[in-house]
């Protein structure tokens, strides 16, 4: 599998350029045209990225989430909920790098083959950073009225996390 993941991009690049040359496309000139569009694209998304990274990171710095969770812990323990997974579930739509760090901690504390380790792996793999993706994609084209996009995105995240819990329990329970 390691070989497969290493070979897929080179083959992809080779094939596109090969096919282009075969169809008499001026591959180098066309590449430059596309690359210029890419540069403009980055210029458009730069403010969104700075705004989101800034807000998410100072939110993480404040340790607000840990505060709320330590307040809720006694109740959740009584309900038999795996508390250590909660920060990950709550942060999944906001920050991909934060949940990756939490997953890393879970692996250190409980091991990757523990129930919670497998659950964390499944949650990390089953959904993407909804709020970041929405801000980035809509920000890049200047759409400010996002209608029901966030609602549907967060609903999909919630269902994914619930499904991850049930499926992990069924497979490895």
């Amino acid at each position: 599998m390691k070989i497969l993941s290493q070979i897929i991009i080179p083959i992809f690049v080779f094939f596109i350029i090969f096919y282009g040359a075969k169809k008499h496309v001026k591959v180098y000139d066309t590449f430059l045209t596309g690359a210029k569009e890419g540069l403009i694209m980055v210029f458009h998304i730069a403010p969104t990225i700075i705004a989101m990274v800034f807000a998410v990171n100072i939110f993480l710095d404040s340790h607000f989430l840990e505060g709320v969770l330590s307040f809720l812990t006694p109740i959740l323990t009584k309900l038999n909920m795996p508390i250590d997974i909660l920060p990950m579930a709550l942060l999944r739509p906001i920050s991909g790098s934060a949940t990756l760090a939490i997953m890393n901690d879970i692996f250190i504390n409980f091991g990757p083959d523990s129930f919670i380790g497998r659950l964390a792996s499944t949650i990390q793999g089953c959904t993407d950073t909804t709020i970041y993706v929405l801000a980035l994609y809509f920000g890049s084209i200047g759409v400010t009225k996002t209608r029901y996009a966030l609602k549907v995105g967060l609903f999909a995240d919630l269902m994914g996390i619930i499904a991850a819990f049930i499926i992990t329990a069924m497979f490895f329970g």
């Binding site: 596109i16 282009g20 540069l39 980055v42 990274v53």
Partner: peptide, 22 residues
Amino acid sequence: LILEMLPLIVLWTGIMKIAETS
């Protein structure tokens, strides 16, 4: 983060322009 993304975006939009044109 933008600096990290910049070369990748520029590279892929360039490659994909070839795929689009062909």
